[in-house]
């Protein structure tokens, strides 16, 4: 890298241009509404319903990710099996695939007239046009985050730690719970926050499968988009600003939790 002043200058310039400027514009636009009008828009029943479905689906998708992402990372790091490299490569597919393609694929798969959709319908489960469908779309697009944040940490975990725990008489379960899981926690939290953020903001994959009925399966980013289509820029900005706020709160919470989990690395 070139010298510190130059590299810092370039970095700050880009951070300002690409992140701070648009966010500033958004806040400025929303602020031009005045407090009462702003509050009326962001607390309208339709908006509140969209928050609820977005946040609950994102939460569901993220917690599912946590379990399956950890399991997937574990299998990829710890075991050798035929096709391992294929599985490892396919994990990145949701990153590479345009999300609208993912949405269409999922809709086609779970539609009532498809083989899987009709099979599920026969046991009373409907996926398309329900929050479950939203969750599945979010799950699909955010799975790589947990896998890819946990995997390198798991790979670097010193095998001697587990051997030491074994020599001290620890069972597999107690070693996992008391040694491995706490050491993976910071990475899990990082993956969790990325996955949750992605789920909150997921648009392309969700709108195909969600049905987008106001007050039930309409996600917040779609509502902002609809306001934009109606040339109601201020209302769009207001709704978008709530998502921005949610993203900040979530980042703060995960950073706090991560710092707590990493307490032991602090030296005095």
């Amino acid at each position: 890298m070139p010298g510190f002043p130059l590299s810092l200058g370039i970095t700050l310039f880009y951070v300002t241009l690409i992140i701070a400027l648009p966010i500033g514009a958004l806040i400025f636009k929303a602020a031009s509404l005045g407090p009462e009008e702003y509050w009326r828009i962001v607390s309208s029943p339709r908006a509140v319903a969209s928050y609820r479905v977005t946040i609950l689906s994102a939460l569901g998708a993220t917690l599912t990710n946590l379990v399956f992402g950890l399991a997937l990372a574990w299998v990829l790091v710890r075991y050798d099996f035929p096709g391992k490299r294929f599985v490892d490569a396919i994990v990145d597919l949701p990153f590479a695939l345009p999300t609208s393609v993912a949405g269409i694929a999922l809709t086609a798969l779970f539609a009532q007239n498809s083989w899987l959709g009709s099979a599920l319908a026969s046991i009373g489960v409907t996926v398309v046009y329900t929050p479950l469908g939203i969750m599945i779309a979010m799950f699909f697009t955010s799975l790589p985050f947990v896998v890819r944040t946990v995997q390198p940490v798991l790979e670097d975990l010193d095998p001697a730690l587990e051997e030491a725990a074994q020599s001290l008489g620890g069972s597999d379960w107690s070693i996992f719970r008391m040694v491995i899981l706490p050491l993976l926690t910071p990475a899990l939290l990082a993956g969790l926050s990325l996955s949750f953020a992605r789920s909150l903001g997921e648009f392309g994959a969700v709108i195909f499968i969600a049905g987008n009925r106001p007050n039930s399966t309409e996600i917040t980013s779609l509502l902002a988009f609809i306001r934009l289509e109606e040339y109601n820029y201020q209302a769009a900005a207001a709704i978008a600003s709530t998502m921005l706020f949610a993203a900040f709160v979530m980042l703060a919470v995960t950073n706090f939790l991560q710092a707590r989990a990493l307490r032991y690395t602090a030296r005095d």
Partner: peptide
Amino acid sequence: VGFVFQHYALFPHMTVGENIAFGMKV
């Protein structure tokens, strides 16, 4: 057996006391 590893393999997220207590806890 008591095994002392070359690079000690202490559990980094546990205090000294918790490290020593691990074997008794499990």
